[in-house]
Design a protein around this nucleic acid. Structure first.
Length: 650
DNA sequence: ATAGGGTTAG
C-alpha cells in the first residue's frame, strides 16, 4: 500500500532556484568519464559501477560528472536494472555525507532515480527520492511529472493526480507533459470534472497543445462517454495520427456502434493513415463479437503482409477471433505459430476449445500450459469448469474445482461456484447444487440462481423453479431472461394459465422479451434477420424454392415441429408458422442461397437457440450436407451430418 | 520523460 502523500501547500516558495553546479573540469576527469561512458554504452554496468565506486576513494575531483551518471542511469532504466541503480544511489548518499557535491539534488538525476524505481515497481522508494528535499527546494516540472508517471504506471491514478495538484499548488507552471499525464490519470479514474478543468487550463495556457495532449483528451472523453467532445477534439486538432484514429474507433466501440467502428477502420485505411497493432487489437474483437470471419481474415492478411512482427496481444485477439467464429483449427494454427505466449494466449486458446465443445483439446492445452511452467489463473478455471458443465463432464469438473485450490492455491470466486452449481444442476443433481449454494462462502449472485432455474427447465422441476424464480425476481427484477425461463418451465409442463400469468407480469413491469435476431456475414456484408421479419427475402422465388426443397426432404424424414417452444397461446398451425420465422432459420436459408457450396455456414444468434430450431438445423445439415456453425449466447453448436457437437446437451 | 490494447459466465 502507498502511504498517503502529504504535500503541504503552506511552504515558502524560494525564488532563487538551487542549481547544483557540475564539478569543475579537471585533468583526470575526462579519461574517467569517457571510460565510464563507453562501459555504460557497452552494457557493462558492473564494471562501470566499479569505476564509480573506486573514484570516490581517490579524490573528490575525480568524481564522474553529471552526464556520465545520467547516461548510466538511463541504461539502468531501459534494462530495468534495479540493482545497479540502487548501488549508485547508495554511492551518491555516501558521497553526500562526506560533504561532496549533492548530486541527488540535481533534477535530472532525481528524475532518473524516480523513473528507475517506479519502473521496477518500487513506488515507495521512488516517492522517497521525490520527497527528499521537497520542502526546501523549488522542484521543476520534470520531477513532478516523473513521479506522477511512476504512480500512474503502477496503477495509482489518484496519487498521480494528487502530484499534479501538488505541483499546481507550488505554482509550478504545467506544460504539455504535465497536461497529458494529468489527463491520463483523469481518464483512468473516469474523472470527467477534473479532466474538464485540466482541459480549461490547457486552453488558457500559452503553449499550444501538442498531438499527445490532444490524444490524451480524446481518450479522456472516450472513457467518460462524451462522444460529442471526442468528435470535436478530433475535428479541431491540427493533425490526427494513428493514436487519434484508434481513440475514435474505441469511442464507437464504447457506444456499441460496431459497424461505425469498422467503417472508421476502413476510412482510416482510405486516408492512408494505416494502422498500428493497437488498431488491430481494437478492431479484431469486433470481428469476434460479430462472427465476422471474412473481415477477421482480411485483417489476418494485413498482419501477414506487414513487415513488422505482430506483438502478442494482436495474435491473442486473432486466436480469439477465429475461436469466436467457431474455427478453432485456424486459432490453433496461429497459436502454434506464436514465438512467445503469455497467460492470455493460453487462456484464449483454452477457452476457444471449451466454448466450441472440444473439452478434450482444452484439457490438452491446460496440461501443456502447466508443463511449460505457466501458472493457470482464475480465468483458466472458469473456462475449464464451464466447458465441463456444457460437456456434461460433472466428475471431471468437480475434480478440477478441488484441484484449483489444492494444486494451484486459487480460492474459487462466485463465478467458479456458479459454474459448479450449473454443472451439478444440468446433470440433474439439483439437490447437490442447492447444497453448494447453501455452503458457499459468499452470497450467490444472479447467475447462480439463473443457472439453477435453467436446470429446473432442463429437468422439468416446476415447484423448485417457482421458488428459485422468486429469489431471482427480487435480485434481478429487470432481467427479462429470468421471466422467459420460468414461462418455459410452465409451457413444458403444459401449464398455459401460468405462462399467461408470467407474460402479464412482464407486461405490467414494462419488460419485453428481447426479439430473436440472427446474423451471418456473406462476403463483406453482415446480414441481420429478426424473428418474424425478413419478408422481402422470404417472398423471393429463390427463398421459396430452397425452403420447399428443405420441407420436402424433412417430411420424408418425418420431422414434426415441436410447438411447445412457442409461448403464446395460439393455435397449432400459427405456432408452426411462427417457428418457420425464427431468425436462425431465415439466416440459414439465406446462407444456403448466397454462400459458396462446401463452405461452413456461420450463424450467430443473440439468444439461446430454441429446441425446435436445434432439431431443424440438425436435419438441414444432413439433407444439404453442409456444416452449420451456430453460435448462441451460450455456446457453439457445430451441426454436421444430422448431429450437433453439443450432443443435445445445453 | 508525455497519448492508444487482448482473455472468462446461465
Amino acid at each position: 500500500m502507498i502511504p498517503a502523500i502529504s504535500l503541504s501547500t503552506n511552504v515558502t516558495i524560494r525564488t532563487n532556484i538551487t542549481v547544483t553546479s557540475t564539478p569543475k573540469a579537471h585533468k583526470h576527469k575526462r579519461p574517467l568519464n569517457s571510460t565510464l561512458n563507453s562501459l555504460t554504452k557497452a552494457g557493462k554496468l558492473d564494471e562501470a559501477l566499479r569505476v564509480i565506486e573506486s573514484s570516490s576513494s581517490k579524490s573528490v575531483t575525480s568524481e564522474p560528472n553529471l552526464e556520465a551518471y545520467s547516461l548510466f542511469l538511463h541504461s539502468c532504466i531501459s534494462r530495468k536494472s534495479l540493482e545497479h541503480g540502487q548501488r549508485l544511489y547508495l554511492h551518491l548518499l555516501l558521497s553526500r555525507d562526506k560533504g561532496n557535491n549533492d548530486l541527488l539534488k540535481n533534477p535530472t538525476i532525481k528524475t532518473k532515480f524516480i523513473t528507475l524505481f517506479s519502473v521496477c515497481g518500487l513506488i515507495d522508494e521512488a516517492l522517497g527520492v521525490f520527497k527528499d528535499g521537497l520542502e526546501h527546494e523549488l522542484v521543476p516540472e520534470s520531477v513532478w511529472v516523473a513521479m506522477a508517471i511512476g504512480f500512474s504506471k503502477n496503477g495509482y491514478a489518484k496519487e498521480a493526480l494528487l502530484i499534479y495538484c501538488g505541483m499546481l499548488s507550488r505554482l509550478v507552471q504545467p506544460g504539455n507533459f504535465a497536461f497529458s499525464m494529468a489527463l491520463k490519470a483523469c481518464a483512468d479514474l473516469c474523472e470527467l470534472r477534473v479532466g474538464k478543468a485540466v482541459h480549461a487550463q490547457i486552453m488558457k495556457c500559452n503553449e499550444e497543445p501538442d498531438q499527445v495532449v490532444n490524444n490524451a483528451l480524446l481518450r479522456l472523453y472516450t472513457e467518460c462517454g462524451c462522444f460529442d467532445e471526442v468528435l470535436r477534439v478530433f475535428e479541431e486538432m491540427p493533425q490526427q495520427n494513428v493514436v487519434s484514429w484508434n481513440s475514435l474507433i474505441a469511442g464507437f466501440v464504447h457506444r456499441k456502434q460496431v459497424f461505425e467502428s469498422l467503417d472508421t477502420f476502413r476510412r482510416m485505411q482510405g486516408e492512408g493513415i494505416g494502422f498500428s497493432w493497437v488498431t488491430l487489437t481494437t478492431v479484431l474483437p469486433i470481428c469476434s463479437q460479430l462472427t465476422a470471419l471474412n473481415s477477421g481474415k482480411e485483417i489476418h492478411a494485413q498482419i501477414l503482409k506487414s513487415t513488422r512482427k505482430p506483438d502478442v496481444p494482436v495474435l491473442n485477439s486473432l486466436v480469439d477471433m477465429y475461436a469466436k467464429c467457431g474455427a478453432t483449427d485456424y486459432s490453433r494454427r496461429v497459436f502454434d505459430g506464436m514465438q512467445s505466449k503469455d497467460l492470455t494466449s493460453w487462456n484464449t486458446m483454452l477457452t476457444g476449445y471449451a466454448v466450441n465443445g472440444s473439452l478434450q483439446k482444452a484439457m490438452e492445452i491446460f496440461n501443456e500450459m502447466v508443463e511449460s511452467g505457466i501458472r493457470p489463473d482464475a480465468v483458466t478455471f472458469i473456462a475449464l469448469l464451464s466447458g465441463c458443465s456444457h460437456a456434461g463432464l460433472t466428475d471431471e469438473g468437480q475434480r478440477l474445482f478441488d484441484k484449483m485450490k489444492k494444486n494451484y492455491g486459487l480460492s474459487p470466486s462466485v463465478e467458479h461456484y456458479a459454474c459448479l452449481v450449473d454443472m451439478l444442476g444440468r446433470a440433474g443433481r439439483i439437490k447437490e447444487a442447492l447444497e453448494v449454494v447453501k455452503f458457499m462462502p459468499m452470497k450467490p449472485i444472479g447467475s447462480v440462481w439463473g443457472s439453477l432455474l435453467n436446470s429446473c427447465r432442463l429437468h422439468g422441476n416446476v415447484s423448485l423453479g417457482e421458488a428459485i424464480a422468486e429469489q431471482l425476481f427480487e435480485l434481478e427484477p429487470n432481467n427479462p431472461g429470468n421471466y422467459v425461463l420460468l414461462s418455459n418451465i410452465y409451457a413444458n409442463a403444459g401449464m398455459w394459465d401460468n405462462v399467461k400469468i408470467v407474460r402479464d407480469m412482464m407486461e405490467r413491469r414494462g419488460m419485453t422479451k428481447e426479439a430473436g435476431c440472427s446474423w451471418v456475414q456473406i462476403k463483406n456484408r453482415i446480414h441481420t434477420f429478426v424473428a418474424g421479419g425478413g419478408f422481402e427475402i422470404r417472398n423471393s422465388a429463390e427463398y421459396k424454392k430452397v425452403w420447399n426443397q428443405l420441407m420436402d426432404a424433412m417430411e420424408e424424414i418425418g420431422y414434426v415441429p415441436n410447438t411447445g417452444v412457442v409461448l403464446h397461446d395460439v393455435n397449432e398451425e400459427t405456432k408452426s408458422i411462427w417457428l418457420c420465422g425464427h431468425s436462425e432459420r431465415l439466416a440459414t436459408v439465406f446462407s444456403l442461397i448466397h454462400s459458396s457450396t462446401g463452405a461452413p455456414i456461420r450463424i450467430t444468434k443473440n439468444l439461446r437457440v430454441c429446441v425446435d430450431c436445434h432439431t431443424w438445423m440438425k436435419i438441414v445439415s444432413s439433407v444439404t450436407r453442409r456444416v452449420i456453425v451456430l453460435r448462441d449466447t451460450n455456446r457453439f453448436h457445430h451441426f454436421r451430418g444430422g448431429a450437433c457437437s453439443c450432443k443435445d446437451y445445453w
